[in-house]
Amino acid sequence: MTNSTSTPEPVQNGVNVAALLGAREALEKAPEAAQFKWRASCEWLNGTHSRSTIGKFFGLGAEQSRDETFTVEADHPKVFASEDHAPTPVELVLSGLASCLTAGVAAIAQRRGIQLHSVKATLEADMDIQGILGIDDDVRNGFGAIRVHFDIRADASEDDIKALVAQSQKRSAVFDIVTNPTAVFVTVN
């Protein structure tokens, strides 16, 4: 123990926690504004290659536009006799999970006053492709399991870093989407 007291440097992880907490407080009072709709559209290009366009979404009671419309492409690798122009959709799912958990780690670290130096998530998922190929009906199409490994350097104890990652999973939309069932409705014109 030392007798000196020093004012700690303010933690800066680039997350505006005050705004997030303000939004949470406002939405507790007006839960209808918390109803969001996320959208994507996708066009077939050729073969297994496609391009999704992501722009407007609905939230806070109104249509929300953004500065840029984003595109994300997907394809399949050559071992599937495809041209490998882009990642496979299942890899994009892993990317979505990783990005969601990583954003959560940063936001929670900021809220808890933990300075991050580096955060790296490495993901691997098992898949038995006898499912998607229709070889064995007992094999599911999707992942058998997903493993996520975080390497985090931060000004915090090992347990505090583990708690960041655990809390990030607890509050993650994509973690919820991949761990729980969701009803999907598909229509055709």
Partner: peptide, 23 residues
Amino acid sequence: AGLHDGKAQFSGSLANVCALADL
């Protein structure tokens, strides 16, 4: 997480809820 046609579905979050509780 789900209960349909006599089949129960369970969340894949068990490892995390246990990690949260252990911590």
